[in-house]
Simulated assay, not measured.
Amino acid sequence: MTTPLPATPAWPPKSAPRLFVPGPLAEGTAVPLEGGQAHYLGKVMRVTAGDAVILCDDETGEWLARVVEAGKRDVVLSVEQRLRPREGVPDFWLCAALTKKAAFDLVLEKATELGVALLQPVLTRRCVADKLNADRARAIMTEAAEQCARTALPGLAEPAPLAALLRDWPAGRRLFFADEAGGVPAATAFAMESGPAALLVGPEGGFDDAERAMIRAHPAAMAITLGPRVLRAETAAIAGTGLWMGTRGDWGAAALEE
């Protein structure tokens, strides 16, 4: 009786660490790492020479690299081969009013995982925050992209006052407005529009009457409802984004039509 050969283990292993690094990457590129990334690989993941690491550069895609040196304070990698090109990103923006830090951190993380192309923080009259630490926000988004195996980082715009956002809104991009006062059911509205899109979600206290009227008067805006329950600001942002991705994004049938 012939003994079957053991299965060849997948390479690179699914457990290989993933990191975004400056690009462009190419075969044979040496990638020296210091600081937090070196600490993560050396102290947390305990890599040694020869171990696999997956690198992305937000330009050329996803690459297999191997550890060449693993010191106490730095790690050197050598890029071996490209595994995937940079992914295509659905043309969807999330325009989310600033909320308390923990809630907005969640929006940053989940919007990245869900596949948004751009996150636009918005300043409204009822916002409890008026500033965003951009470096910290990008770090949260980068870590989320690494965790969910994205090969493209979403953009992060500077916080914009609502009036300025509407004034400078680009032609040809539909603005779905999550309105507590009601509107077209979100899934229906999303299915009606196939072009570039964005979702506008308010802060904890919602939009005031003047803001709501200003948004509804904008030619690109379409008021939508996310259901019969009153959702937290962060829940509305995440739920609305997920629904758009399932209706018009890269989750289902719409993606196959492209």
Rank of each mutant, 00 (worst) to 15 (best):
E80H: 09
C95S: 13
V79D: 05
W63L: 02
C95T: 11
S194P: 05
L119G: 05
T188V: 06
D74C: 03
A187N: 02
A102T: 12
G115N: 04
T188A: 07
T99A: 11
P170G: 00
V184L: 12
E158H: 12
L166P: 15
A171V: 11
A96N: 09
C95R: 13
D130E: 02
E158P: 04
T60F: 09
A65H: 04
N133W: 08
L165S: 13
W169R: 09
G172F: 10
G71R: 03
E87C: 14
D74H: 12
S194H: 02
C56F: 07
V116S: 01
T124M: 10
E158N: 06
A145W: 05
A163E: 14
K72A: 15
K72F: 05
F177W: 07
A96G: 12
D130H: 10
A178P: 08
D179F: 09
F104K: 01
E158Q: 14
R82T: 03
K100A: 12
T99F: 05
L132A: 10
S78E: 15
E87A: 09
E158D: 13
Q120E: 00
G182P: 01
F177C: 09
E180T: 14
P161L: 06
A145C: 10
R167W: 08
L108V: 01
G183F: 05
R150S: 01
L132I: 08
C148F: 05
T124P: 05
L118G: 03
D74M: 03
P159E: 07
A178R: 11
P170S: 00
T151C: 02
R73G: 13
T99C: 11
R82W: 11
R125P: 06
E143P: 03
A129G: 06
K72Q: 13
S78D: 14
D91A: 15
C127D: 02
K72V: 12
L119A: 04
A65C: 13
K101P: 01
K100P: 02
V122L: 07
Q147G: 03
F176C: 06
A134K: 12
R138D: 01
R126E: 14
V128L: 05
D91C: 14
T142K: 15
E80S: 07
M141N: 10
G183E: 06
R126M: 04
A111L: 03
L83T: 11
L165K: 15
R73Q: 12
E69C: 05
R86H: 02
A65P: 04
A157Y: 07
A164D: 15
R86W: 02
G88Q: 13
D105P: 11
C95A: 15
M192Q: 11
E109K: 14
Q147H: 01
A152K: 07
P170L: 00
E113R: 00
K131R: 14
E193V: 12
V75G: 13
E69Y: 03
A163R: 15
D74T: 13
Q81H: 12
P170K: 00
L114Y: 07
A70P: 09
